[in-house]
């Protein structure tokens, strides 16, 4: 897969405890805005949106005593850069076992940057049915000046204004050794 790009961590912006608090707040805000867990469908976007969506689902269940529906989207087949040079995406499975018609879908991803992933996720969702509402929850929002499409998040764990040369990495125990968020730059 090409040469490994060397990244240097410039600063750590969240540790495990801060992430936990942010996730708890996201879950609370989602429940408040949607007036409970009825008709909620929490959908994680592969890869790093998936463990976050699972955590939010757990926390909503703890808050409301009712577990919302939960699913996974793999947006690979809906990407807009499939035919451009360099794209080499691997297809993984989408798991939306319950009908999304009439549900309040909460899309969950780790970082909101250009908005293109969310565009692909929305297109795919619409092929599955007609949700009543779709809202977006992200752990990190890099700021609207980077957006390439008119998309914004409804629930944000932390707003982190960044330069284009910077890379935000959300590290999760499922994929990385640590649970943290850092700003990285190419060395």
């Amino acid at each position: 897969m090409g040469d490994e790009i060397k990244l240097v961590e410039k600063s750590r912006i969240m540790d495990a405890a801060a992430m936990k608090r942010a996730m708890r707040r996201l879950a609370t805000e989602i429940v408040e805005k949607n007036k409970g867990a009825d008709d909620l469908y929490i959908v994680g976007i592969r890869r790093r949106g998936v463990p976050l969506a699972e955590t939010i689902t757990d926390k909503i269940e703890a808050l409301e005593g009712q577990r919302p529906l939960y699913g996974i989207l793999d947006i690979t087949l809906y990407r807009d850069d499939l035919s451009t040079v360099g794209a080499n995406p691997v297809v993984n499975r989408t798991e939306l076992d319950e009908d999304i018609d009439g549900k309040n879908v909460i899309l969950v991803d780790d970082v909101l940057y250009t908005g293109r992933t969310i565009r692909a996720a929305l297109d795919q969702l619409m092929d599955f049915g007609r949700p009543r509402k779709v809202q977006l929850a992200v752990l990190i929002d890099r700021g609207s000046e980077h957006r390439e499409l008119p998309i914004q998040a409804d629930f944000v764990g932390k707003m982190v204004p960044t330069k284009q040369t910077e890379i935000i990495k959300v590290m999760l125990k499922e994929y990385d050794d640590v649970e943290a968020v850092g700003i990285f730059e190419r060395s």
Partner: peptide
């Protein structure tokens, strides 16, 4: 493994994805 992941597309109500659009 890729084919396993494509199986799910064939179980959807709308059995179509835009991956090879224009090809």
């Amino acid at each position: 493994d890729t084919a396993e992941n494509f199986r799910e597309v064939n179980t959807r109500e709308i059995k179509k994805v835009p991956a090879l659009r224009g090809k």
